[in-house]
Design a protein around this nucleic acid. Structure first.
Lengths: 209, 209
DNA sequence: TTTTCCTATTGAACGTCGTTCAAGAACGGT
DNA sequence: ACCGTTCTTGAACGACGTTCAATAGGAAAA
């Protein structure tokens, strides 16, 4: 069964080539002929290792999600400062997470943009493993949110985590995108710290009303 | 000078065709041959009325920005409830603006997505009139923010307006994009009301510290 | 009006893209 | 060693944005 290993090797080479292409030129840099040249095969051979170029993009995006998770884990490890209250500790963790997200995206901008720019045609859906990976990342946000608003129903935390992530994602994405005025990274970090802290504080205040 | 009016007419027809194409099939629906067929001209004639297809997209996006501004104006008109404090009035206006934004985007999803999906190749910049239009829209956010945090330096309000817009934009965009779980519009509106109100409340609380 | 020049218009053609396919090469089981 | 199956190849296909030589037609001069 050497043909199967060769197929796997080609697949890996293509994924690696696609990852380099995305890092260098974004999603638009993923071109069948270039990938074939870099992986050392003919254009047509791509379609034995992979159904689509879309499948390659999903593979690369999956690796990017895994890399983000590693960054979030590293960011969560240290810190552990004493906090006056559980709510303050939760707020600090949310701010920390948001800043870690900002820094990951800043350090991996083209790779990360590919995660959100990629759209598959018509009604085709993302692979299950990909959705699962994406979903699991939200648990990082749900845990502090539970500490922040323990009285909320279970499903509400998942919804709030989506909303909070979307908000931070918007700030990070539009901030790094220089479409409307260039915002230095340090200023962006400061804004995120202010806004996430204010948001968390506001949520806690809402609770007691 | 009939040729000049004909050129203008063709330009208008092409913009209208592009707008229909975007509304129906998104940015990817803008195709030279289809536009030419719908505008009743040959493919090559497009390039007499317009430099690029990008120019057409910018024209359509400009119209979309104008439509958003009309929606925001309409949304700002009524309401005018009595508020206990300037801060509460400002918060209510920010929530109102965010909800109006959500509803505009929900009612014009493909058109609005085109505004953010459109990327021009290499180092070409957006036209000046387009940047100005986009910039002017931020003043809608800056005014309530000034009421909310009067002690902030002038430039800070512009920065905070960008950040707040980015956050709401993230919530709206990822919420309407059904990539990760479908969130009903009503639920999305509730989330926005909660989050913007909490954020505004948190910002006010930060001020007094 | 007639003639002339110039520019607008046309649609075939170019280069690039993802994907497919007929042909030939290489593999795996017997 | 053989043969059926499968993989690999690169030319070919259709679609895309854009360009261009050829032609048609309007504007200015006679």
């Amino acid at each position: 069964m050497k043909t199967e290993t060769r197929r796997q090797n080609l697949r890996d080479a293509l994924i690696a080539a696609a990852e380099r292409a995305i890092a260098a030129n974004g999603l638009a840099g993923v071109k069948a002929r270039d990938l074939a040249a870099e992986a050392g095969c003919a254009v047509g051979a791509i379609y034995n290792a992979v159904a689509d170029l879309d499948e390659l993009v999903f593979a690369v995006n999956g690796r990017t999600l895994a890399a983000l998770e590693r960054s979030l884990d590293d960011a969560a490890r240290p810190a552990r400062k004493k906090a006056a209250s559980p709510a303050e500790a939760a707020t600090a963790r949310l701010v920390h997470l948001a800043v870690a997200y900002l820094e990951f995206v800043a350090a991996n901008t083209p790779r990360w943009r590919a995660v959100f720019e990629h759209r598959l045609p018509d009604g085709r859906a993302a692979p299950d493993w990909y959705v699962a990976e994406q979903s699991r990342l939200f648990t990082y946000i749900e845990a502090p949110l539970r500490d922040l608003q323990p009285e909320l129903a279970a499903g509400q935390h998942a919804l709030a985590a989506r909303t909070l992530f979307s908000a931070v994602h918007g700030i990070v994405t539009l901030g790094l995108e220089e479409k409307l005025g260039v915002v230095p990274l340090a200023m962006l970090r400061a804004q995120i710290e202010i806004f996430v802290a204010a948001l968390a504080g506001g949520l806690v205040a809402t609770r007691s009303r």
